[in-house]
Design a protein around this nucleic acid. Structure first.
Lengths: 202, 202
DNA sequence: ACCCTAGGCGAACGAATGTTCCAAACGGGG
DNA sequence: CCCCGTTTGGAACATTCGTTCGCCTAGGGT
């Protein structure tokens, strides 16, 4: 449905309603039942709420999960993304990069249960822009591709290196000319793959 | 109902269950009904789910909204920061000494209202481990200290450089030998200070 | 070997859910 | 001023919800 400049009949109470739902969600992290929405918005009947929900669903703010429960969509959180305003003229706002995400967590971590954060020690990866004290976001899995930065288990020690391969087989390549590649004697065990990085400046 | 290969002891499957709920929420942004939780986790009866929910509520991962709907708590989104990855699925036995729990947003963004995300362009800061395409977390303020990485406005252009000073005054120092320092002719206007960095691989 | 206990099963139950239908109120355009 | 599309109120409805209860199983402790 297009919202051109033309004003439609008695509409945009919906915007206000949406705002209240956003507030509610931000406080409780879920959407209430139709009845509760009703007296939250000052509606006396659930059919009014039902109609509202239909409108908001059509507008893309709300959706149904496979098991028919109300859930907010990404667009539902637009207001929060607008919390990072960008002055006119700033060439590249990261909102573009993250426009599909509500939070940094979600941007970086699609599978929470198999993701761990690991603090980086040492400077063996410094030429890849991975510094001592940075935090690596690691997705736990045993399969990796060449060129991936992986957490591997070598002699019972965990180490972060780039996965590489030559004629003799797989090897773990540091990103620092001062370090030598590691060639696992036996099988190479991969703990997880680094999918992101965060760093905090003090 | 079958059990996965190894019959595990009678222990904290709860951690595994929590993980699946986290994944579910991360995908749908709400928690499903007990019945759905049931077959999501391989439980045949809702009473088992009910018990699980009680346990998770007690552990502080889940709570009830005022209108008795299931909602995740903040802790639900926290993840453990380990100095080294932990081998097996060690339950979150809260050994505070070795790890802290946090959400990435809270970790990186203490002052949301004055924080902006900016995508990094170019490689002028590459020796500081800041790469093209990284996202800088910038706190908007006009004061900065020497050595801070700042977003400065030079000739109407926004640029990320290290703030430095010599006998002639302030200057903006790239972290790349191929680039020359920038010496602002007039006043140096600082848009904000870089307080963090995030990067996503692939 | 025994018991003990936590966790899961299955069924029954009242309460609450969201849908649907129709009628009434609202407000702008003609 | 009236008309008409839109929105809300109200009630009936089948469905689904989460709770509760007793029973059962499997491990671990002693």
């Amino acid at each position: 449905m297009f919202q051109t400049g033309i004003v439609m009949a008695h509409q945009n109470r919906d915007q206000e309603y949406l705002g209240k739902l956003q507030d509610y969600f931000s406080q409780y992290r879920n959407l209430p039942s139709y009845a509760v929405i009703g007296n939250l918005l000052g509606m006396a009947s659930k059919s009014a709420v039902s109609a509202l929900v239909k409108r908001l669903t059509l507008a893309g703010y709300i959706e149904m999960t496979p098991d028919k429960r109300l859930a907010p969509t990404k667009r539902f959180f637009e207001r929060e993304l607008a919390d990072f305003p960008v002055p006119a003229g700033l060439p590249a706002a990261a909102n573009d990069a993250m426009s599909e995400s509500l939070t940094i967590d979600e941007y970086l971590i699609p599978r929470p249960s198999s993701t761990v954060l690991v603090k980086v020690k040492g400077d063996s990866m410094i030429e890849a822009g991975i510094h001592d004290g940075d935090i690596a976001i690691v997705e736990k899995r045993h399969a990796a591709s060449l060129g991936d930065k992986v957490i591997a288990i070598v002699d019972g020690e965990y180490t972060l290196k780039t996965l590489a391969k030559d004629k003799q087989g797989f090897l773990l390549q540091p990103e620092n000319a001062d370090y030598a590649p590691i060639r696992p004697q036996e099988g190479l065990e991969i703990y997880g793959v680094m999918v992101g990085l965060i760093r905090k400046y003090r």
